[in-house]
């Protein structure tokens, strides 16, 4: 399989995201922006709190990728694509996070990605609840939020290991279909980072 042409066209937005990362205190160099470091590679950080925070910072590459942020909007309308433009046609959260009555998420987003229409899909396609909105937040704020059961869907830190490491809707982020850049690394690697972070006390950057 050859590298699709459109990937070349997406270099600019990816770099732009790199700048955002830098502004939020993450040390991300462009050559590692598509991969995730293993928990072991942070062994050199001796301070356990700093090391824990470093795990989360690395995980932040995933959380702040368009694949996650687009459906964790701050308001009621998701964004779309690597450029994270407002979703077209205009769709809104609705009472259950699955759209308004006149336009439900799953009419277009069906069980699986459909590359013909460059449309992503998953059986559980929906918006994250409003309290789980991440757009416009710093990674540090997202970290506090993700630990707060009131704003993370009532999850314990241990639940997060499974949610990020094994949930299939989250896992879509690494298999997003034609026209979208996958989240960095693999879901397994992201899960390993969550596990290391939780076990090290879940410190925030």
């Amino acid at each position: 399989m050859t590298r699709p042409k459109w990937l070349l066209l997406l270099v600019v937005p990816v770099l732009a995201n790199g700048l955002v990362f830098a502004a939020t205190g993450m040390a991300v160099s462009s050559d590692t922006s598509r991969t995730l470091a293993s928990p072991e590679s942070f062994a050199a950080i001796t301070d356990p709190v700093q090391r824990s925070a470093a795990y989360f910072t690395e995980l932040g590459k995933v959380l702040e990728s368009p694949r996650c942020l687009n459906c964790h909007p701050a308001g009621n309308r998701p964004s779309q694509g690597d450029m994270m433009r407002p979703h077209e046609p205009p769709v809104f959260r609705g009472p259950d996070g699955m759209g308004l009555v006149s336009m439900r998420c799953n009419t277009c987003h069906q069980g699986a990605n459909f590359d013909q229409g460059r449309i992503p899909g998953h059986p559980a396609w929906h918006l994250a609840p409003l309290e789980m909105g991440w757009q416009g937040k710093t990674l540090s704020e997202i970290c506090q939020q993700i630990k707060d059961p009131a704003r993370n869907g009532g999850r314990t830190p241990e639940d997060l290991i499974d949610h990020i490491g094994a949930d299939t809707l989250v896992g879509w982020a690494w298999h997003p279909g034609v026209g979208r850049t996958p989240a960095p690394g693999t879901q397994k690697e992201a899960g390993a980072l969550v596990a290391a972070w939780v076990k090290s006390g879940a410190a925030c950057p």
Partner: peptide, 29 residues
């Protein structure tokens, strides 16, 4: 458009529960 942006391709789907909704046809197998 072939990308569920214009909805000129939308048809009505009648559900078993008696409800109906429109569905773009260009982005669905």
């Amino acid at each position: 458009c072939g990308a569920a942006q214009c909805l000129s391709c939308a048809v009505i789907v009648d559900m078993p529960d008696g409800s109906s909704h429109t569905n773009p046809t260009c982005v669905v197998p």
